[in-house]
């Protein structure tokens, strides 16, 4: 024996304590609370599926669910495609390429708050983007004051912030695409676009599915971008509120409805899990084909 029986548990103690107390227990408690009418003070009575019945009739829930869903569909296609093109652009070892890669990654490391504030200023009614729009002869665009445009603006910010991250993932995957396939296609007279569609994309499909899954899950859980761009309000009349924003608004503060917020959290979890399962399914099919 190389160690005493209790030694491993001493090593594990801090980690297990943190994870059990601050992840596993709150998660299980969230599921229980979702079926109660607990308020800001906790406690509460078991109320069965009342919270979910209430949700069905709650227009705020439907607005938030719609916005988070729209967000998911808005950010996934550009986040799957643009970083791939970016990776192809920075793949070749031309002079200075390290500098460009570094620069393209910079938005990833900045906090969502910094990014949100930077873009709030850029998209201001008199901000830089609108100055350019005006200079080009257009009318000012109400990026942040129109509730639909606010959501689109936030999506653009999410895409801007996420591109560098997925670019790095694609770069790693591209390094594993056998070069001879490309060369063979080139010999057969396939142009760059044809080679991209017939060689690169099929070889990268598993990575693209992974990127789709990550960006979908993150997109559905969007909070900071919309919060910051709307100055914390969720847009005019709260029309741009997302599901996580609704959880935060419903569950916190002195009037916090912990039970109802937990029910909303459970819905969020089920959707997130569903998205991951769909992806696993898609990738398994890949293997069979």
């Amino acid at each position: 024996m190389t160690h005493r029986p209790h030694t491993p548990w001493l090593f594990l103690l801090p980690g297990l304590a943190v994870v059990l107390m601050f992840s596993i227990f709150p998660f299980l408690n969230m599921i229980v609370l979702a079926f109660t009418d607990a308020d800001a003070l906790g406690g509460g009575q078991f109320t069965g599926v009342d919270n979910f019945v209430r949700m069905v009739d709650d227009p705020k829930f439907w607005v938030a669910a719609r916005n988070s869903t729209l967000y998911l569909f808005g950010v996934v296609p550009p986040l799957v495609l643009l970083p791939l093109l970016l990776a192809l652009l920075v793949r070749r070892q031309v002079p200075g390429i390290t500098f460009f890669r570094t620069a393209f990654f910079t938005p990833v490391i900045a906090s969502a708050v910094v990014v949100g504030l930077i873009w709030t200023w850029l998209l201001d009614s008199r901000g830089l983007v609108n100055s350019v729009v005006e200079a080009l002869g257009g009318a000012r665009i109400p990026f942040l004051t129109d509730s639909s445009l606010l959501l689109v603006s936030a999506m653009a910010v999410t895409v801007w912030k996420g591109m560098g991250y997925y670019m790095v993932i694609y770069l790693a995957a591209l390094a594993n695409v056998p070069n001879d396939l490309h060369e063979a296609a080139q010999v057969d007279g396939a142009g760059p676009i044809r080679r991209f569609v017939s060689v690169t994309v099929p070889a990268l499909r598993p990575t693209m599915v992974l990127v789709a899954a990550l960006s979908a899950v993150n997109g559905f859980r969007v909070f900071a971008e919309v919060y910051l761009l709307s100055g914390g309000s969720g847009g005019p009349g709260g029309a741009s509120t997302t599901l996580v924003m609704l959880i935060q608004q419903t569950g916190t503060g002195l009037t916090g409805e912990v039970g109802y917020a937990s029910a909303l959290s459970l819905v969020l979890f089920v959707v997130t899990l569903g998205l991951l399962l769909i992806t696993l399914r898609l990738n398994r099919k890949e293997d069979l084909l």
């Binding site: 107390m21 601050f22 992840s23 596993i24 227990f25 709150p26 998660f27 408690n29 969230m30 609370l33 906790g42 899950v217 859980r221 909070f223 996580v244 959880i247 935060q248 569950g251 916190t252 916090g256 912990v258 917020a261 937990s262 959290s265 459970l266 969020l268 979890f269 997130t272 899990l273």
Partner: peptide
């Protein structure tokens, strides 16, 4: 790892 942080926000606050 599978627990999304956003889903435990409220009950973590209670803890």
């Amino acid at each position: 790892i599978l627990v999304p942080f956003e889903t435990i926000l409220i009950s973590l606050f209670l803890v």
